[in-house]
Amino acid sequence: MGVTCVSQMPVAEGKSVQQTVEILTRKLELLGAEKQGTFCVDCETYHTAASTMGSQGQAAKLMYVMHNSEYPLSCFALFENGPCLIADANFDILMVKLKGFFQNAKGNKIESRGTRYQYCDFLVKVGTVTMGPSARGISVEVEYCPCVVATDCWNLVMEFMQSFMGSHAPGIPSVFSNKHDSIYSPADTIVQYMELFNKIRKQQQVPVAGIR
């Protein structure tokens, strides 16, 4: 477990999602990265049920239940801006029992799937973000495994991301600046994925012509 930065790669002009992913992965392979199987991060949305809401008429809160193939035995449950709970994988079954309090927003499932690459001490995961049947965007996750303090190695990670993403390399993620000198945890990665998925959900759907 190291410091991870999750970002979105915009779809290249006149190219489909698939083609942009291929361009990215080819660049990585030219750099010397080795393919190491696949990865998947998924996210399901739950609403707080109306019956549990207080009389003050607070807005329904959204809760996200997420899985990361990097941590196959864990399940992450988190509120936006709220705490992040790390539980065993059978937490999903518990959620079914909590139907009275949290209702699954059907059709809101969003996930990112793709290939996992290793380059030296870096792990790079380029994934296609899909919601239902349509591809919505591209996620790029870069993990620098030897380091545990996010702000220590940010410049180094940034330089690496620029080497294959060019000008699309992202700015410093907000979770990094909140961490100061504390140790990076897998929950920080999941929070970044949640933010990315929320951003993609709000974006206009990619024109259908661009998808194969």
Binding site: C120, P146, L156, E159, F160
Partner: peptide
């Protein structure tokens, strides 16, 4: 180790290593 750039080439990474 992860914060200091190289004093000669000014970069952080070379062949994936700081």
């Amino acid at each position: 180790l992860f914060q200091a750039p190289c004093q000669r080439c000014g970069k952080f990474l070379q062949d994936g290593l700081p």
